[in-house]
Amino acid sequence: MTAPEGPVLSGPVRELADRIVAKYPVARSALVPLLYLVQSEVGWVPREGMREVAEILGLTTAEVEAVATFYTMLKLQPSGRYVISVCTNPSCSLLGGRRLYERARDVLGEASERVTDDGLFTVEEEECLAACDAAPVVTVNYTYFDRVTEEQLEGMIAGIREGRVPEASRGGVPGDLREVSRLLSGERSLPGPERQPASATGDDGA
């Protein structure tokens, strides 16, 4: 997907952005949430989106970019609609995580490091996902599948290709990267209308 023509955060999405900003005592805390919101609109985070976020928060684009490049879940180049992450940290690899990762790469090819030609997949090697009891662990858009075998992994990929996204071990059927990014932006935890954000530092210099 190429970068968008018009503004990324406009209309109701821009209103949502304002509500997300409002839940923090200092606007800048909403930087990553707003980048997730951009990702939910575009499917990744183009520079144009960073510029808009900078404008909303009163920062420079360079400041936003410096933050965006720090975090692996913000995709700074076009990404697959389904990000398949395979944990290869030892607790998983001792039980086959490394082989799973290699299998995913074999099935989806070199391009999956960025995005497959059909735009569907990105494959990532993950560090410990805090679910080592369920090793080896695979996530689809950061939704967990426990004790995955190579066969199951191939089945998951085939299913997604046919539009049948498999149900995760917990958390239901993962949405695509845009939907999940929307969730990550914090849209489900917004302050009620009556909640006034407190002054951040007790003085006005914040």
Partner: peptide, 26 residues
């Protein structure tokens, strides 16, 4: 307020976590 990180182990270190929560590199 529930805040979601974006993938970086170091953000568990308490001062990096605060930087991250303030909208900076962790």
């Amino acid at each position: 307020v529930v805040h979601r990180g974006a993938g970086a182990y170091i953000c568990g270190e308490e001062t990096a976590l605060l930087e991250s929560l303030e909208g900076r590199r962790g």
